[in-house]
């Protein structure tokens, strides 16, 4: 039997799973299994809380929050063996474009601490403002700016060969 929850959730996942996967891929600096686990955890929590979320902040904002907070929480327990609960999605063998640049960027992200990485992903990939990012990460706007500046400094060094412009402020302000 299909419930109202299932209908709304299906519509959301169909429209936004790719967006969450992309964010998770950057958070886990390209580890497809970890990224998929992260998305699964976020979507599971979203499903459980769907009625309240749908009435409140909205599922997209909630999914951003749960994706980043789950990631940060998991990173705090990094010494633990990560248990795999889901199966890997089937791959079609389509090569990614611009593989060298992609690998360089992901390696640069790996050098950025988890919370700073979450700020970068929210600000520059998901186009969240400083205020929105602070709300999502339960921190002050000053902390977001500080974390962002530190992350950009690291990325600027790591991506020097890619001639990256990390001087702009990205996202909405």
């Amino acid at each position: 039997m299909t419930s109202e929850r299932d209908v709304g959730f299906t519509e959301f996942v169909t429209a936004n799973r790719g967006r969450l996967e992309r964010a998770a891929r950057l958070l886990t600096y390209g580890n497809e299994q970890d990224a998929e686990d992260l998305v699964q955890q976020a979507l599971t929590k979203l499903y459980v809380h769907w009625p309240r979320v749908a009435r409140g902040t909205g599922p997209l904002t909630y999914s951003y929050r749960i994706l980043t907070t789950t990631f940060i929480d998991e990173s705090r327990r990094a010494w633990r063996r990560h248990e795999r609960t889901g199966s890997l999605p089937a791959e079609t063998g389509v090569p990614a474009p611009d593989a060298d640049t992609r690998a360089t960027v992901l390696a640069a992200l790996a050098a950025v601490p988890p919370r700073q990485r979450a700020v970068i992903v929210l600000r520059y990939l998901l186009d969240q403002s400083v205020e929105q990012t602070a709300t999502l990460l339960h921190c002050s706007e000053g902390t977001v700016k500080s974390q962002s500046a530190k992350a950009l400094a690291t990325l600027r060094i790591r991506l020097a060969d890619v001639h990256t412009d990390t001087t702009h402020h990205g996202g909405t302000s």
């Binding site: 891929r25 389509v94 990256t164 412009d165």
Partner: peptide, 18 residues
């Protein structure tokens, strides 16, 4: 100069479509 957002956007692409 390559924009950071653009680089992140490209890096976020899946290694293999699924």
């Amino acid at each position: 100069m390559t924009d950071l957002a653009e680089l992140l956007d490209r890096a976020a692409e899946p290694a293999a479509a699924h």
